[in-house]
Design a protein around this nucleic acid. Sequence first.
DNA 1: TGATTAAATAAGCATTTACTTATATAATGT
DNA 2: ACATTATATAAGTAAATGCTTATTTAATCA
Lengths: 113, 113
Amino acid sequence: MEQIKTDIEETANLFKLLGDRSRLTMTAMMNVRECCVCEFTECFGMSQPAVSQHLKKLKYFGLVNERKDGYWTYLSLNKESEFYNMIPAVIDAVPDIKEEIDVLLSKCKGGAC
Amino acid sequence: MEQIKTDIEETANLFKLLGDRSRLTMTAMMNVRECCVCEFTECFGMSQPAVSQHLKKLKYFGLVNERKDGYWTYLSLNKESEFYNMIPAVIDAVPDIKEEIDVLLSKCKGGAC
DNA sequence: TGATTAAATAAGCATTTACTTATATAATGT
DNA sequence: ACATTATATAAGTAAATGCTTATTTAATCA
């Protein structure tokens, strides 16, 4: 009974997270490969704190893992998330997203900034 | 180029729409069958204007069609929407949603209120 | 015509969201 | 030790969101 609420509500929260252009784009990029924070701030016309706050939400929800290395922080989809398996299904349903994300990823230098 | 922005942004808007428990549930219900407005107000613990406002957003986005018959208004997924094909893929990715929605739909009398 | 009914709209309100600028933290390099 | 760098946090703000209650619209029925 409570389960009924929980599953739908949790999924609604996932969609709310993805319901922002920046976070959806970040998620689609991470669906291809691990990304550095600096890649997001570089590719998007967006301030560094704004990117940081979006990533905080993704991490808090458990969708994203971080790995620190020197100056840099790398983000990737969290394979342990209960939503991990949904992500490709959801992302790949977006028309033409593959091409769009490829363009964005190639704009980023590829890692360290 | 502009296309790049548009597709992702539009999809983010779709997810934003689905990123609300009530609208996600309504959408999942309509993914099974046409529903009467009164079914939503009845099944959800929610006022009639609240339901009406959620449906307005779904209609404005083009995801949902309405059909009027006497007192009642019936809603269904709009087959002409560019997102129509995404809906089953997205909805069916939700764990256990089939069972949850079946319970909800059986709680509604099945149509006219 | 007048009452009833389903649904939409209007107006108001508290909360959330997505940003901004300024500052802090923590690792690296000199 | 000190400067530099990537990132996080804090505080503030304008706009959006999701509700509420009150009212209106439009169809049906007596």
